[in-house]
């Protein structure tokens, strides 16, 4: 099964199980959870089921295309279910059958793993899912986002697509993943992503302009405040994402001390909180009180 087949199968499976398939957030995000559809669905008043592929960029994980297991930009398949269906685990396990992992023939385990995102002020309880000792998914019941207690609860399933593809295709190098076919011609992960990984690693670790990034961070911060003032939740939140990505590059450039690092994380969190509070206020709900 190719990389793209895995995506197709998951999309079709979750679509037939009540999810609407949406497009990835067209911005650099550090994890699928940052997608505004996830964040605002989780704290908002309405129930919803969503699924989407989210490319996620983690500057510190780049390895110039040289490491067989780590990449700067990897792909997550995200499923957001609110409220949590009573058979959610079974739904997840059936999805593995769909992508060719016969659950009766593999050792599938749910290993306790509680999730936390300091930048989003978010936490959840759940498991890391192991398939024959390979970590293939993260299963999380969100408890708080931006410090706000979620109610009803949203469950998030994250499939690590590279891991799953490597596992299914039985290969040891991420660049050897068979992505799909263009006509008869096999197209590999390497063909599509190797240059990207190599060049962005150089950018993130060696060449990104630190002064420019620091200025941008400050500007984005101000922009969030000004947009919140104008009542524009989504543009304000997108600027939080921009600030978060700039912070990640600064981190990989080794340009921030530990103390500064903590302060910047807290700052991004406070910006996210402002956006979320505004969102709830506009929906006629209280935010701060729920913290």
């Amino acid at each position: 099964m190719t990389f793209q087949d895995i995506i197709f199968k998951l999309q079709s499976y979750w679509s037939s199980n009540g999810c609407v398939i949406v497009m990835p957030q067209d911005q650099e995000v550090g994890a699928g959870t940052f997608n505004p559809k996830t964040v605002f669905s989780a704290i908002g008043p309405n129930n919803i089921n969503l699924a989407y592929v989210q490319p996620s960029r983690r500057p510190c994980d780049g390895r110039y295309g040289e490491n067989p297991n780590r990449v700067y930009r990897h792909h997550q398949f995200q499923v957001i279910l609110k409220p949590d269906p009573k058979n959610v685990q079974q739904l997840y396990l059936n999805s593995l059958n769909e992508i060719g992992i016969d659950i009766k023939k593999h050792d599938i385990r749910f290993i306790e793993d509680d999730w936390e995102s300091p930048t989003l002020g978010a936490k959840g309880l759940g498991w890391e899912v192991w398939c024959d000792s390979m970590e293939i998914s993260q299963f999380t019941y969100f408890q708080k986002i931006a410090g706000i207690t979620c109610s009803p609860i949203t469950v998030e399933l994250t499939y690590g697509l590279e891991r799953i593809a490597m596992y299914i295709q039985g290969i040891n190098n991420v660049y050897d993943i068979l992505w799909g076919y263009a006509g008869d011609k096999p197209i590999y992960y390497r063909d599509l992503n190797y240059d990207f990984e190599r060049e962005f690693s150089a950018f993130n670790f060696d060449y990104a302009n630190v002064d420019l990034l620091k200025r941008e961070f400050e500007d984005f911060k101000k922009e969030v405040d000004s947009l919140v003032e104008k009542g524009l939740v989504l543009p304000a939140y997108e600027h939080c994402i921009k600030a978060s990505h700039v912070f990640n590059i600064l981190d990989s450039r080794n340009a921030i001390s530990h103390t500064e690092r903590t302060n910047m994380i807290l700052l991004i969190r406070s910006l996210v909180m402002k956006c979320c509070d505004l969102f709830l206020k506009q929906k006629g709900l209280k935010g701060g009180d729920k913290r």
């Binding site: 067989p68 297991n69 023939k105 593999h106 050792d107 599938i108 024959d132 596992y167």
Partner: peptide, 26 residues
């Protein structure tokens, strides 16, 4: 020695050396 939560452990992917080698090389 590994312990799986399943009856049939003959599937070569269970306890696969390949998987383990990748982790050990890290």
């Amino acid at each position: 020695v590994g312990v799986a939560n399943i009856v049939d452990t003959t599937n070569p992917k269970i306890g696969s050396s390949k998987l383990l080698n990748a982790k050990l090389s890290d």
